[in-house]
Design a protein around this nucleic acid. Structure first.
Length: 820
RNA sequence: GCGAGAGUGGCGGAAUUGGUAGACGCGCUGGUCUUAGGAACCAGUAUCCUAUGAUGUGGGGGUUCGAGUCCCCCCUCUCGCACCA
């Protein structure tokens, strides 16, 4: 009689069913509001890990919930398929990156399908598909036309042994990760995207992205790093040239007693005098070494060297020495700073070390700074002193006044400086999108004509890991005639940074099959922006900033009409697990530990709590095994129940069992009551204990709806359903009012559908419904059912609980007072 | 240093607006049923106390009839940026 719950059978059945009915296929529609839900697409590494399960389970709850609420939900999936791991695998295993990548995609797709995620699989694509990257090449050409893509010299990490460029992540302690030789800096011509043109817009919009976590916005603001200040020109003694500095403190200009330049500053050569030549080159070499090793170790002693030259402080007319200093960065501002030791801590330390003059030009109120007694720079507010006609002015107004004064004499001007720099997109790598440019001796860098796209990445290459990118040696690929003059020319052999692909994939999902351009504008405008984006916090800056930038570029290219790609963002936490380590035998698998001791040597194992799952720590749970043992529904339920989505989730075997038990309990609550409720009608009212159950049912609908919608409190939503299930178990008057039981059970099944869709569908069918539970829609709560006849009032005297009284809900105040 | 966030039972975590702190789950304790169960079901489980009761949300102040929640100061932890001129 009783049907046991066998997750595997149930899950296979419904996954098959969804596939056949194309349940999650969507098209543009006007009779339903659209909702675009997206999780960050995965890199096809070969296997799904628990982080993916969590990410996609979270997304699937929202997708299914919104669908049940009547939204036209776009929920696509694809693959961020270009990148280095494929090349490395090719080198190690003698396979081809394409083969490796597509095989990984095939097996990961099957894994994802076993989780029961509601994707419109017809929209799936991989960024290494020619039909995707060809449109990326077109976007590049349009950007090139507009001056948004340009080429300039830039230094890169170069391994002289492997003859290849290394990404920053491939440099470990200044050495090549593969051959462990010291990495050099090499000057190369690279392609850049002019993200700095959008710095202001990217920054301004951070205030309008109210659906984003504050910390992500803070990181982006920090990264963009806008600061208001002044550009000031310092003439060089005995030269017509001037040194430009950027400062946020023009008010302290009278206190600038020397100047510091970055060791890499282009004017260093002309500034160094013959006598200082040797000292300077020694210093530059020293900083180059220090940059990598000492800087990383937190060493920050201020070091410098005198160039032998002097510049002139434009306000005091004084000659001030020009130094090189290790703390001045070429990449920020102009690479030159006016040093005001009295009011800047770094300049202060530098001046003390090299015995340079310190002059106080800002006096704080109610205090008298004396240079000899200063232990550190004074960086606060105050009134100007030793500043000529500006004496007595408060320093905030002095910023304006001095900037205006300099502007009038054409010696400086107010300016804005950004930390953000243009995005270098060239990679000397094989497995990426070829940059569609042809170099001609006569015509220079010529864009590949649109009709010649795509520039197909050739497949016939062999990867050895040495000698640089195989594209740079692939004659058939390289040799091409100049599209402008027809003379023999050479193709660009660099490929794009893979962040380029992930900067617009979300838009392509709107029209993955479109052959008329990157985007079908109508489809893109219908679906975009993404209403809810979900992914890891590790992408807080790079990916999310680049995607925002690209969206604005696509808008300005006329390809779509939105300003921002992602209306709401949810950054989910990591999946962690306890790890165990033996002093002698290193990290231990859980089965290598018995009673807290290492099973190899018997010594106590050290327990590390909350460590991110990683193979090296042997604390990884394989989703396949988990699903095999408990089923996809349990895996989903636990990853949603154990922690709120934005927090780290600590994996716990017993917690998983708890979720599995709960599903069994739900299952039995339905199967045990099937006979009872077989002919029962849904109630519109109830009496006594049945009214309490009915109230609980409708309270639960309300709670779960509000918890999911916008708040993403899945853990408390699930807890609420558990309470309802407990109430059904506790309810003993089923014989009298079976309809109330049916209502409660159907509610449980419907509310659980976004979390455990397979079990939910199966139970819904058992309850006698021919149509999918998703078609049945999201339940509505009945406000009348929420009303109680009596409520418990807590009587507090001086804030202490002194008693409880039961009163009618509509009792008058004096009745309540009397009762109390 | 700057920026963001967090400190609540043995554990994961609840507590939309200030109103019975500890929902729900794990673990633990006891029970029922069973040949047996790590199955299922029922009950209990913040701390102290025999109990009335008292104490409890990192610490210290404050506002309030009433504070986990609001204000001030301090401590600790996590994450991000970090010589940013």
């Amino acid at each position: 009689m009783e049907t046991p719950y066998v997750p595997k059978t149930v899950e296979q059945k419904w996954q098959q069913q969804w596939l056949q009915s194309q349940a999650f296929k969507v098209a543009e529609s006007t009779d339903k509001p659209k909702y675009y839900l997206l999780e960050m697409f995965p890199y096809p590494s070969g296997r799904i890990h628990m982080g993916h399960v969590r990410n996609y389970a979270i997304g699937d709850v929202v997708a299914r919930f919104k669908r049940m609420q009547g939204f036209n939900v776009l929920h696509p999936m694809g693959w961020d398929a270009f990148g280095m791991p494929a090349e490395n695998a090719a080198i190690e295993h003698g396979t081809h990156p394409a083969k490796w990548t597509y095989e990984n995609i095939a097996s990961m797709r099957e894994q994802l399908k076993r989780i029961g995620l509601s994707y419109d699989w017809e929209r799936e694509f991989a960024t290494c598909d020619e039909s995707y990257y060809r449109w990326e090449q077109l976007i590049f050409l349009k950007m090139f036309e507009r001056g948004l893509a340009y080429k300039k010299g830039s230094s890169v990490n170069w391994c002289p042994d492997c003859q290849t460029v290394l990404a920053n992540e491939q440099v470990e302690d200044s050495c090549c990760w593969r051959c462990h030789n010291v990495v050099e800096q090499k000057e190369l011509e690279q392609w850049f995207f002019k993200i700095t043109d959008y710095a202001d817009e990217l920054l301004d919009w951070t205030d309008k992205l109210t659906g984003w976590p504050e910390r992500v916005l803070a990181m982006q603001r920090n990264w963009i790093g806008k600061s208001y200040g002044c550009e000031i020109e310092f003439p060089i003694v005995g030269s017509a040239e001037k040194i430009k500095v950027f400062t946020t403190r023009p008010d302290t200009l009278f206190g600038a007693t020397f100047m510091s330049l970055a060791p890499e500053h282009p004017m260093v050569k002309t500034l160094v005098t013959a006598e200082q030549q040797k000292a300077v080159s020694q210093f530059v070499a020293q900083v180059e070494r220090q940059d990598k090793i000492e800087r990383a170790s937190g060493e920050n002693e201020k070091l410098g060297v005198f160039t032998g030259s002097y510049s002139i402080n434009p306000l005091t007319g004084e000659q001030i020495p020009v130094f090189l200093a290790n703390f001045v960065l070429m990449g920020y501002g102009t690479g030159a700073v006016m040093a005001v030791p009295a009011h800047d801590q770094r300049d202060f330390e530098f001046a003390r070390k090299y015995e340079l003059p310190i002059r106080v030009v800002i006096q704080p109120e109610g205090e008298m700074l004396v240079v000899e007694q200063m232990a550190e720079a004074y960086v606060g507010a105050g009134q100007l002193v030793n500043s000529g006609q500006f004496d007595g002015v408060d320093n905030e107004s002095a910023k304006e006044q001095i900037a205006a004064y300099l502007d009038g004499r054409n010696e400086g001007r107010k300016t804005v400086n950004f930390r953000l720099r243009d995005w270098g997109v060239s990679r000397q790598r094989y497995w990426g999108t070829p940059i569609p440019i042809i170099y001609c001796d006569s015509c220079g860098a010529v864009p590949v004509p649109e009709q010649d796209l795509p520039v197909v990445l050739p497949k016939d290459v062999e990867l050895t890991g040495e000698g640089g990118s195989p594209l740079a040696r692939h004659q058939a690929f390289l040799k091409v005639d100049c599209p402008a003059c027809g003379k023999p020319a050479r193709r660009e052999s660099d490929t794009f940074d893979t962040f380029v692909e992930s900067s617009w994939y979300f838009a392509r999902y709107a029209c993955p099959e479109f052959t008329g351009g990157p985007l079908d504008k109508a489809a893109a405008n219908y679906w975009l922006p993404v209403d809810q984006y979900i992914g890891g916090i590790e992408h807080a800056v790079m990916h999310l900033l680049y995607a925002r930038f690209f969206t604005k570029v696509l808008r300005d290219l006329g390809m779509l009409d939105v300003d921002e790609p992602f209306t709401k963002l949810l950054t989910q936490g990591m999946v962690c697990m306890e790890s165990q380590r033996c002093a002698e035998h290193g990290w231990l698998y859980p089965e290598q530990v018995a009673d807290g001791n290492c099973t190899i040597c018997g010594k106590p194992a050290e327990v590390g709590r909350n460590e991110k799952m990683s193979k090296s720590k042997k604390n990884v749970i394989d989703p396949n095994q988990l699903i095999e043992q408990f089923g996809a529904d349990t895996a989903r339920l636990f990853s949603l129940f154990a922690a709120p989505p934005e927090k780290d989730l600590e994996w716990n075997e017993q917690g998983v069992e708890g979720c599995s038990r709960f599903l069994g309990r739900v299952w039995r609550s339905v199967t045990d009551n099937l006979e009872l409720i077989a002919t029962a009608e849904l109630p519109t009212a109830a009496e006594g204990a049945a009214a309490d159950l009915r109230r609980k049912t409708h309270q639960t609908i309300k709670k779960v709806t509000e918890d999911i919608d916008g708040r993403f409190h899945f853990n408390t939503a699930i807890a609420a359903v558990m309470e309802l299930v407990n109430a059904i178990y506790a309810f003993k008057d089923g014989q009298q009012q079976p309809g109330v039981v049916r209502e409660a059970l159907e509610t449980v099944v419907r509310l659980l559908n976004p979390f455990v869709p397979h079990a939910s569908e199966e139970l819904w069918e058992m309850l006698g419904h021919a149509e999918s539970v998703e078609t049945a829609g999201w339940p509505q709560w009945d406000a009348d059912a929420l009303i109680t006849a009596e409520i418990t009032l807590v009587v507090q005297v001086n804030g202490k609980v002194r008693g409880k009284v039961e009163v009618a809900v509509d009792a008058a105040e004096d009745v309540i007072k009397a009762a109390a």
